[in-house]
């Protein structure tokens, strides 16, 4: 078993910019090229057997970060170190040669769109074994598929294997998606909002399943979500993203129950609470307006036009990362002693 505090994934000053497509004429007239700065210089590290949460609202860059980590997007700048090796500039061929395709997997948000409707569950789950040339033996493929279906509790597996996605409920589909990700025994899985499309009563069982693979197969996760309540349930540590930057990092318990950054405070105070009396009395921290465009993000601190506590300096200079207690950092001028 790996040591608890060994780092598996290290993300160091990662950038992912997407060029904005413009006509030739526009480029001539307006000069400089424009970019959507989806991920704009973030750093964090994930320890082995950890569930690391990346949280934020739409447009924060959390999903782009996940895609870069599984190799679906190439980073614009910055370093990703996986199990001690720099993988940030690997070509697709190299990525496969080093076995990263097998070691790193992703689970997508929408089980209604991520499964091929014309394939049976057996074929869907077998595909990673085939494309990665793990084995060609039909018997062995079927055995491995049935075994993983048992593990994700799609039982009787021999029955589920021959069904099509439309014959399954949302929760069962997500179990198929998890089986497909786990059939190769990956070390690291990026789970992008894996329960947000599911009904409340079955969410907990899907989250339990993710934790089962951590306990029994030593899987490490990056769990991407906008839902801090489920994040608290599964996560160990968390980073809160806003407009391509990380604004706060720490243990999930610290960040969610004692948020420090104004954005995190607004996010936490917006979450509905299943407790009517508490809900009637709670005070909400409101942000003004809406999230600005990531093409030309605000200067200084990106939250300053919306922040209820904004000061002069916030519009001029980017805030430094301040450690307010061991392991809990916040990027905000309010916490800088001057």
């Amino acid at each position: 078993m790996p040591r608890q505090d060994q780092v598996l994934v290290e993300v160091d000053n990662l950038y992912k910019w997407f060029p904005v497509r413009r006509s030739f004429l526009e480029t001539l007239l307006k000069g400089e090229r424009l970019f959507v700065k989806a991920v704009d210089g973030i750093s964090f590290s994930i320890k082995k057997r950890e569930i690391y949460v990346l949280a934020g609202e739409s447009g924060s860059g959390k999903t782009t970060t996940g895609k870069v980590l599984v190799g679906l997007e190439k980073p614009t700048r910055g370093r990703i170190v996986y199990d001690g090796a720099d993988i940030s500039s690997l070509s697709l061929k190299e990525w496969r040669r080093q076995g990263l395709r097998k070691k790193i997997q992703m689970i997508f948000q929408d089980p209604y769109e991520s499964l091929n409707p014309r394939q049976r569950v057996l074929d869907i789950v077998a595909e990673p074994l085939i494309v990665n040339r793990v084995t060609r033996d039909k018997r062995e493929i079927e055995e491995r598929v049935l075994k993983i279906l048992e593990e994700v509790k799609l039982t009787p597996a021999t029955e589920f294997a021959y069904r099509y996605p439309h014959q399954l409920s949302g929760g069962q589909r997500q179990r198929v998606a998890i089986a497909r990700a786990m059939v190769l025994d990956p070390e690291f899985v990026v789970a992008d909002e894996p329960v947000s499309m599911l009904d409340a009563s079955i969410r907990a069982s899907i989250l339990d399943l993710l934790m089962y693979f951590r306990e029994h197969k030593n899987v490490t996760y990056l769990y991407i979500t906008h839902d801090l309540a489920t994040a608290r349930y599964v996560g160990d540590r968390i980073a809160i993203m806003y407009l391509g930057k990380i604004v706060e990092k720490g243990s999930v318990e610290d960040v969610v129950t004692n948020p420090q950054h104004p954005y995190t405070q607004a996010l936490v105070s917006s979450i509905p609470v299943p407790d009517p009396k508490y809900a009637r009395e709670k005070k909400r921290i409101e942000l003004k307006g809406e999230i600005p465009s990531p093409i030309n993000p605000p200067k200084g601190c990106r939250l300053h036009p919306r922040c209820p506590f904004a000061m002069d300096i916030c519009s001029r200079e980017e805030p430094p990362e301040v450690e307010i207690k061991p392991g809990h950092t916040v990027s905000c001028w309010l916490y800088v002693k001057r």
């Binding site: 409340a200 009563s201 079955i202 969410r203 907990a204 069982s205 989250l207 339990d208 801090l228 309540a229 489920t230 608290r232 349930y233 318990e253 969610v256 129950t257 936490v268 979450i271 609470v273 299943p274 407790d275 508490y278």
Partner: peptide, 17 residues
Amino acid sequence: IGAVPSHIGPKKRLIAL
């Protein structure tokens, strides 16, 4: 109610239906 997580109060174990 038992299956829904909350971000306030003590962290509880969720019981899936």
